[in-house]
Nucleic acid binder design. Structure first.
Lengths: 330, 330
DNA sequence: TTGAAAGCGATACCAG
DNA sequence: CTGGTATCGCTTTCAA
């Protein structure tokens, strides 16, 4: 930057202003500085900018890279950022490593904003984090004071799925979901809401809920689904907490020599492969890409617009009926 | 950091040394400083560290987020970094935006190393980039002076796939591949190598190659596959340049009311869904996660070990026969 | 071994 | 509107 200032015969401060489109610089000076910048091929060091102002980086914490749903969110966010100077910094959680250290890692890098999907970080900790840096939390039905939240109407989505199965005549509907390590009434992750709603709906219909828990790995989901079908062979339908689990349920069904005529499966998320004719998984779509782009929108409102009041956005899920759900077997 | 130094009654320099595990600090001082760091909950600002030393961030450029193969690589890299101070910074290319601006974006952030998957950046430009920052290029069969490369033996992999189809009796084998915008003899992206090998093998077998090109979107692949099957109904097998394309080819086959008994499909990459019983796509695995972790390994050799001579690693692909390939129809 | 002081490359305040 | 200067938090000589 010194070089540019010298070459253009102006001060560093002036160059800085030109770069940031700040006020207080005459058109002619701007012109001159800009052309020298071009000549010298000068690019500002973001590390230095980060020390005084912004790092132009947005941190995004996701539980893992195995779920295409998270990829959808990343994609939506990346697209929303594509015309800005901001760059995504993806921090995947690995295995059992909880969200907190990952989020601290991002905060250490002075990111200008954080998108978190952690289902298991405490609200208190997030409030504290949000005092330092703008935070948008995806999925969780919190009631925050300092961060924004984007949720899907998981209650409505679950109702769509369960009612769909009921309308097909199913009476033995099992639920496959992720085991949460913590359960707090003020921090309800999506899977908890889905499970609770499922239980309520089944009881309302005079039926007995049956919930199977698994970890967030394909193997664990497959094993849980297989055990479920062994333990309760009368099961005619499985409502899986997300599409990744549903795909594993389908795998279990297929490996037992059964088809969707025997056991219907419905998921949640609508990942791309669900729409593939060979899979054709009925599911509830929650518009992952849209969630990602709204997250960026909310973050930029705080970063650029200086908003400090929390906002909440909720998306309406939609049912996607495909051939993995059929009328109940005789 | 000043606070820590004051509280511990030492100089900033000493604190800095303790943080970096540098030489020249007595055990007792280290002990004292470390405990004050813990008490004060001090965390160094990486932005400031980046100005003088490292940013502890590794930039990773990937063409898009739609392909699970790239996600595998990301995952391998993330796992390899999980016990280090380094953090991945993912920069997805979007649509037609080529790799160069994305890589510049990462370089502006003073990342300590860059992993690139760009098939279409010129070797010259990469050499220049690699003078500033360690670079590992994935997939491309370059002959670099300043950056490392990791490739899959695409020739061997293609041979596995094509020979498999030939051994099943197929004589009308089409190839579906991505259209490259540039073709240079010194920068051969994997898809080019696969196509060329396919052509060679077919000619050697006395058969006529038939290549269909598409863009890197699901729709484009689906359309190309459908057109291919219309234009050459005699086709009994499709060798797709990667699994994402193969999945779309399967979709096209299914939508035309055909099955793998009519048209065999084989892909490349072995993404997870390929192994699903409902899809059961034959493919060639190239161990994406391993590529990601090797990339980190090579990068850390340069970053920490100071290596400057280029290294090249090549992985041996393996055939995965599943039910999407069958003996040729009568 | 330790501490003091000089940068790194930008931003931002404050006179002129 | 412009230029000088202090400053951000850390690393890195260089003396002591």
């Amino acid at each position: 930057m010194d070089d540019v200032a010298r070459a253009a015969g102006v001060s560093k401060g002036a160059v800085s202003k030109v770069i940031r489109n700040a006020y207080g610089v005459s058109p002619e000076m701007r012109e001159r500085v800009e052309s020298t910048i071009r000549e010298l091929g000068y690019r500002p060091r973001i590390a230095a900018q980060a020390m005084r102002g912004s790092s132009f980086s947005i941190g995004m914490e996701i539980p893992n890279l195995d779920s295409e749903f998270f990829t959808q969110i990343m994609n939506g966010a990346a697209i929303a950022l594509s015309n800005t100077k901001y760059q995504l910094m993806i921090a995947p959680g690995l295995g059992e490593m909880s969200g907190t250290p990952v989020l601290e890692n991002l905060a250490d890098r002075q990111v200008d904003g954080i998108i978190a999907i952690s289902p298991e970080v405490t609200p208190e900790w997030l409030e504290e984090l949000a005092r330092d840096v703008p935070v948008v939390l995806l999925g969780r039905h919190d009631n925050p004071r300092n961060y924004d939240t984007i949720t899907n109407d998981d209650e409505a989505g679950t109702r769509l799925a369960v009612n769909h199965l009921l309308s097909l005549g199913h009476r033995e509907i099992a639920h496959l979901t992720l085991r949460m390590r913590t359960e707090r009434p003020d921090a309800r992750p999506p899977h908890t809401v889905r499970r609770e709603t499922y239980e309520t709906l089944l009881v309302e219909a005079g039926l007995a809920p049956s919930v199977s828990y698994c970890a967030a790995t394909s193997d664990s989901a497959y094993v849980a689904a297989t055990e479920l079908l062994h333990a309760r062979p009368q099961t005619t339908a499985i409502f899986a907490g997300n599409d990744t689990l549903a795909i594993e349920a389908l795998r279990a069904v297929a490996d037992l020599g059964l088809t969707s005529a025997d056991v219907s499966v419905i998921g949640y998320d609508d990942i791309r492969v669900a729409g593939h004719p060979l899979v054709s998984l009925s599911t509830v779509t929650q518009f992952g890409e849209t969630m990602g782009s709204i997250a960026i929108e909310l973050l930029l409102e705080r970063i650029r617009g200086g908003r400090t009041t929390p906002r909440h956005r909720e998306l309406k899920p939609e049912l996607r009926v495909r051939s993995s759900t059929t009328t109940v077997r005789a």
